[in-house]
Write a protein that binds this DNA or RNA. Structure first.
Lengths: 150, 150
DNA sequence: CTAATATCAGGACAACTGATATAT
DNA sequence: CATATATCAGTTTTCCTGATATTA
């Protein structure tokens, strides 16, 4: 392994930064363009996934987890509520809070969607990568998580 | 290495998909919130980085590389031109094309920005990852590029 | 009274579609 | 005439900020 000069190292890091910026932008666009007319947007899917994974939560909880403002998350959640996939009940112990949960319709949609493999990202990972590559992908995702928290 | 059942494999792929969605969204927001008032937006920085790495290009070239429509890229480039960091000269061999290039002011900005460590992503990769991890990150990015093209 | 929760109103960014002018 | 490049105009999505009501 060759020892790099500071200048060479800087160039490599800069190249990685460029690539990562591009990939993030493209992935985002790819995810969005998969959305069908009667489908949910990426932000909406993220909320459904959060509720499925972490259980009933408040708007503020979800906003903090996703890294957006409560007002922004409120708008997303409102859309999901009127679509009938998220329901809110007042917190019995704290009148300010509204506890959000998935409706049966939401759980059914998630099941159906995964079974029909209509999730582009899911299918793409499954069909394009072998076990070793999926492991590498997982390592890369962990590195990105660390980057975000830094 | 344990042999996985189909069900276990499906769960792993689904988890990777969820993680990747979240990471993409958070990285995007992280990049955006770094923007200072007199700074460039993420899309603008992506264009500057592209021109630095690949040299003079047309709007259509950059749009294809970034995966957006020429009209969208045209708007971003127009802003950069009026900011004086990108200049366009007509292609001598093809009157339809305008060759875009970084101005000296742009190169100065890039230098200053990196030296002042104001580029969050650049600095984060440099300070958080060692050489081996940067290699793993590069592998992960290559996998994501393949995913996008699939 | 201060802090937390949620919501309303308006605005910015970054993409989109459709249409058009010009050059090959 | 068909294709490629670039641009104009209008729209959408998703986030933002600032202000406000309500409850703890």
């Amino acid at each position: 392994m060759k020892r790099l000069t500071a200048k060479e190292e800087t160039a490599l890091v800069a190249a990685a930064a460029v690539d990562l910026r591009v990939v993030v932008g493209q992935l985002r666009r790819r995810l969005r363009e998969q959305a069908q007319p009667d489908d949910f947007t990426p932000s909406q899917i993220a909320v459904l996934a959060h509720l499925e994974r972490f259980g009933p939560s408040t708007v503020t909880d979800i906003a903090a987890a996703e890294g957006v403002r409560p007002q922004s998350m409120g708008a997303t959640v409102a859309t999901l509520e009127s679509a009938g996939v998220v329901g809110g009940t007042p917190d019995p112990g704290d009148g300010r809070r509204t506890i959000l949960a998935l409706t049966p319709a939401a759980r059914e949609w998630i099941e159906t969607n995964r079974a029909a493999k209509e999730d582009w990202l899911f299918r793409a990972i499954q069909t394009n990568f072998d076990a070793a590559e999926r492991e590498q992908l997982a390592v890369g995702i962990e590195l990105l998580k660390r980057l975000i928290k830094s």
